[in-house]
Design a protein around this nucleic acid. Sequence first.
DNA 1: GACGCGTGGCA
DNA 2: TTGCCAAGCGT
Length: 354
Amino acid sequence: MAVQKELFSSRIMSWYTSNKRDLPWRNTNDPFKIWLSEIILQQTRVDQGMPYYYKFIEAFPTIKDLASAPQEQVLKLWQGLGYYSRARNLHIAAQFIATELDGEFPITYKDLLALKGVGDYTASAVGSICYNLPTAVVDGNVYRVLSRLFGIATPINTTEGIKEFKKLAQHLLFKKDTGTYNQAVMEFGARFCTPANPDCDHCIFNDSCVAYKTERVSELPVKLKKTKVRKRYFNYIVLLDSELQTKLHQRTEKGIWQQLYQFPLVETNKIVTSVELMKDDCFKKIESEYKLEELILFNEVPVIHKLSHQHLITHFWIVSVKSTIENGIKISALPDYAVPVLIENFISKFPPFK
DNA sequence: GACGCGTGGCA
DNA sequence: TTGCCAAGCGT
């Protein structure tokens, strides 16, 4: 092995002591807050998640507060952060803890893992940070640090890779203080052993890093590429009546933005003209519910909203409604609804909604 | 085991 | 402009 276990842990712990950021969830022992921070930080940068952490602990100082909140409020607070299943599962888990566990936060790896939205990484992180459980974390940072230090080219997104890196991480774990150690490795990966242009010449491991010595730093870790992007064509029908009401629908189907709100949607298989749009069955269904005036295309140039796996080529169509919209919502109430960024951006640009 | 799930920053 | 990446998880 390139680096002795004790050498690795002592150097990484020392580096962390001098270089760790002062983050709010590092100044608490409250398992609820540690857990919350870990959920927020899944696939999310610290800078992006920080304001959400503050919003949540202010709105929900305790698990009980979160558990008793309506889902709508939780999703509204989560709006803009993405991966909304995290918010739904966080809420479900809080309710589970409050009711089934009598408010007692789980203290074993197995019980942590049983919470919705908590997988191997999060159970290991919370368990180590809160209870010094002997569970090593393996996140994107750990993959990068270990693959480079030990020159491991096994693809990290394969069953074999996951198993191999978990085993190595578990072997290296510094048992005296697993929480600090886990955070140290992640912090080192996030702040020093970066994906691009790491400062290897000044690295504490440049005497022993296999990737550095063999000039393979930029090639590691290895990740198999996958998933092509699907194109979809969205036509949002923005209704507006004389009483300053509009209409929102909640997305209840599987897929993106579950439980979030949007304007009535007509999805097509290509960019359509107003004539083509009016021929669409889905549009006709909306049309039959209201007395519509003419369709006005808000954006000639489509908004291309890019998600990880989809490009949403989007047009917004403005329609005045002669009658009063049934179960419509006041424009002034729009801010109460959790909406995707795509919708929020439109609302902020459409004069009557600003 | 592969795939779907958001948003934003960076080279 | 494009692709990759970010403290992953559920199905």
